[in-house]
Design a binder for these strands. Sequence first.
RNA 1: GGGGAGAUGCCCGAGUGGCCAAUGGGAACAGACUGUAAAUCUGUCGGCGAGAGCCUUCGCAGGUUCGAAUCCUGCUCUCCCCA
Length: 400
Amino acid sequence: MTIDNQLAALRRGAAEIISEEDLRKKLQEGRPLRIKLGVDPTIAHVTLGWAVVLRKLRDFQKFGHTACLVIGDFTAQIGDPSGKSKTRPQLTREQVQENVAAVSKQVYKILDPELTEISYNRDWLGAMSFEDVIRLASRYTVARILERDDFTKRLKEERPIAMHEILYPLCQGFDSVELRADVELGGNDQKFNNLVGRTLMSQYGQDPQVVLLMPLLVGTDGKEKMSQSLGNYISVVDTPRDMYGKTMSIPDHLLENWFVLCTDVPLEEIKELVGASQAGTLNPRDAKRRLAKEIVTLYHSAQAAEEEDNYFIETFSKRNQPVEAEEASIPEDMVSEGQVALHVLIGRLGLAKSNGDAKKLIEAGAVSLDGEKATGLMVPVADLKGKVLKVGKHQFRKLS
RNA sequence: GGGGAGAUGCCCGAGUGGCCAAUGGGAACAGACUGUAAAUCUGUCGGCGAGAGCCUUCGCAGGUUCGAAUCCUGCUCUCCCCA
């Protein structure tokens, strides 16, 4: 594959490459490049948002380059200074390794393990003496650190900035020095940190890394970036049903963004799909169905995607009872005098946050049995068995 | 070191002794409408309980009072101004 073709593939979806010329030069050297990606050890899921960057990393692997994952077990104590997170407790190496082991199963759904190298930044950051820290800190100025958006904003809003937070970008930058990274990948919000890496590398006499930034994937809520803590995410290990359903629930304006960042559909085709749905010649819903199928195919299978598409049309478009719903049996101890308290049952089945919540849902008309709205709380068991209980828009249980 | 302001429910923000589980907005959830989209309208929005009601919440710990988010004391944290 020619360098131009490689570049084109790597450029797909990228928000910014600093700089493309540098990247070209590095690619021309013909050796396996070291592509760095920082990993937050506190995460439990690989979300589609993170997958955007991982998929880009995989693109590099396809061209024979090495993925260098840096587990930020040291930096996690600080927490990226978004101002939201407080200083977090130090995790033990064991805890971190457990998390990493759990998450790497998901990561390798995307990455090639053969070309992946994992390191922990506590190994070098934790070993630094106070003197080392001072020396590192002297390489950067306060004014430049405060250029970072978060800091500027917090300063203006009179919100606190702790001393250690301003060291965060330096820590991350130093990782690049330690790893001798050729390229650092990141979400667009990592731009500042990654550029610090460039500066520090030159200061330490290294060839500065190329920074490749991917746009942030907007979450299912259509507003915030997809993240675990906001709950607006799809995990790569979500069931095909959830994955498909959540995708269908994203706002239309996300279509293009998601197609480009989450699928391998060629750009020209995406343009057509998006154009047609905007022009009204294609129902945006159908474009979204395509998107949902692509995503399910990627993480499960084409067959699963087909099945979920059918299920979706049958259950939601045609509003039929689901053909197959998860079975749930009514616990014996809940039956008294032949009656069952419906809200308690819903609570017990985990379909609502609490019994009180379940009661409110019933009052709001969000609960139905075989399509009939439930009204009372006490229901004879006989009227429940064999019926499909629906709670909210998409939770179904076949009672037995 | 000195002076001033502040900490309220998921978030923002009212509330200065009883009518406060706490106005309002946002978020969230649900209903209608739809395409599990958007917009709009409606309802819910601390927990438990069939219910009466009970329990927990207004930075933390004590105190005053029949009664405190509201008053007093101590503590913790944050911001601003001066040095």
